[in-house]
Structure formats: C-alpha cells, structure tokens
C-alpha cells in the first residue's frame, strides 16, 4: 500500500515518532527483563481505555510498511472490537491485513493465543486490562512493586493453596498467573488457562501492552513460562469436553453456544482461522 492510503493529517501508525521511540525503549527494557512491568507514558488514544489501547500503542510502535497484521478478539477475526482495531490500523498505516495466523507478522490479540504454532519472526501483541498479577490480593501498586522486587510471591501461593484445600483445585480459569524466566510473576492477560502452555518457550516474541495502567512487559522468544502450581497438584489446563460442530476439532479451545430455548448447547472453535483451515464435518447435525 502507498502512503496515500493513510488517513490524512496523521503520522504512519497514528503515534508521532517520538512517542514510538519512547514506547520502543520501554519494549527493549521489557524484553531485557522478561516478565517485568515497565511503566511507560501511555498516550490517550482515539479508542477507549480498556478496549485495547495498550496493545494498539505497542503495535503502532513496531509496525512497518512491510508488515502483515492480524487482529483477533476471543480468538476470532470478526468480533466487533477486532474489526474496529484492524480498521483503525488500516486507516493509519495502510498495511496489509490477514486472517491467517501463518501469514501474519504481527498478531494483536485479546483473550486468546492462536491454536496454530507461531514461528520465529512473528510478534504476538496482547491487550492487557490489569498487568499486575497480584492486584486481587493486594490493590496497592506501591506494595506490589515491592513484592516483585523481592520476588515475594508467597501471597499467590497461599491463594492457590487455599483454593486446593477448599475446592480440590485452583479456581482460576483464566488470567492464570505464570512465572517468567524463573523470576517475575506475570499476568498472561485474561487468556484461558488452556492457552498458558503455549506461552512457554514460544518461538515468537510476546509483547504485552496495558494502556490504562501504563505498563508494558514482554516474553522474549524461547523463554520459560511456567504456570504456578504445586508438585502434588500440577497445573491443569481445561477445555470443554466436546468437539467443534463445524470442524470436529477436539484439540482446540471452544466457545459454547446456546442454540434453542431448551438450552441445547453447541461448541465451536474460538479460533476462527484454525476452524476454517480444517475440513468441515460432513454431518451438519453433529
């Protein structure tokens, strides 16, 4: 695409070059200290806080004219907010967009990690609502900063222990805390715990942007990402015990649909690109 296709009056990627440079510096620091939350001068964006402003600023700072962008929300390319963010980047960069995971160089996501394995050279940009994994246990940021500095994560282990003692299992089903590079406790963003294992030693670069909370963090390629657990209660990712009614997949994460008044349920892949890449099930009533 040519420069002419960019919205008149705006810089490539919307942000001015100095802002991009400030964000890139924060990204470099984040990559250098995996899992550490780097404060950054988050800008007010033309999309609302909480709707992906952190991810958008990260993407805007790293995107170039040769990139191919994919935007997903809940795993799907056609959810309204994904459509809106993709259209935003189309207006302010004019770069090519795609729905195919393999064809994208940058994938901005909310709440999912694609089912297809990512490769080296790809960048996965997560939209993060609350970057602080400890905030439900300790709302004071000054205090959680101290806990991270001392790697004092006992509070989280006690929480897990109490879950197991009371319910027999961890009750956290999404945004399940991980330890990055054996040092920093990190929120993987509200992805289902099912996706957590994909973060571990992922060949692609993972960048996390929290606009409202003004934090950036990162997991460099091939970095260890371990979901918190105990030796006698290992981490257990879960998915619905069903098959996708469209493609029959039993290995993908599923959305549950209620299809009639009696509460009959169908399950479909949340990752629409993964689903579309597989042959459809012959029997439509499956």
């Amino acid at each position: 695409m040519t420069e002419a296709s960019i919205e008149a009056g705006y810089n490539f990627g919307y942000l001015d070059e100095n802002t991009k440079r400030m964000i890139r510096r924060a990204l470099l620091k984040a990559v250098a200290v995996p899992g550490y939350q780097v404060p950054f001068g988050s800008r007010e964006m033309p999309l609302p806080y909480g709707w992906g402003t952190g991810g958008i600023q990260v993407t805007a700072s790293i995107i170039g004219a040769d990139d191919t962008l994919k935007v997903i929300d809940q795993g799907a390319d056609d959810t309204t907010n994904a459509v809106s963010i993709r259209r935003f980047f189309n207006r302010v960069t004019g770069v090519a967009t795609t729905e195919h995971t393999a064809a994208a160089t940058i994938i901005q996501t909310r709440h999912r990690v694609p089912e297809a394995k990512l490769r080296e050279g790809q960048v996965l940009v997560y939209q993060v609502p609350m970057p602080e994994p400890l905030f439900r246990l300790e709302p004071r940021v000054a205090e959680t900063k101290r806990m991270h500095a001392l790697a004092d994560y006992g509070l989280m282990h006690v929480k897990l222990y109490e879950d197991i003692a009371r319910h027999g299992a961890a009750t956290t089903s999404y945004n399940y805390p991980v330890l990055v590079n054996q040092r920093y406790l990190m929120s993987p963003s509200p992805i289902p715990a099912f996706d957590n294992p994909k973060l571990d030693r992922m060949p692609a670069l993972q960048l996390f942007g929290a606009g409202r909370e003004k934090r950036i963090y990162a997991v460099p390629p091939w970095t260890e990402v371990k979901s918190l657990d105990f030796e006698d209660h290992p981490f257990q990712p879960a998915r619905a015990d069903a098959a996708c009614v469209i493609c029959g997949a039993r290995d993908s994460y599923l959305d549950e649909l209620i299809v009639d008044d009696s509460g009959k349920r169908h399950f479909v892949c949340s990752d629409t690109d993964y689903c579309a890449s597989r042959p459809p099930v012959q029997d439509a009533a499956a």
Partner: peptide, 12 residues
Amino acid sequence: LPHYVDFQSELE
C-alpha cells in the same frame, strides 16, 4: 466487549 472465552473457562 465479548468475554466468551473467559466466561467459557469459568463455566467449565
């Protein structure tokens, strides 16, 4: 915004 994915994990 849609939270199908998180809600699904909560349901399970």
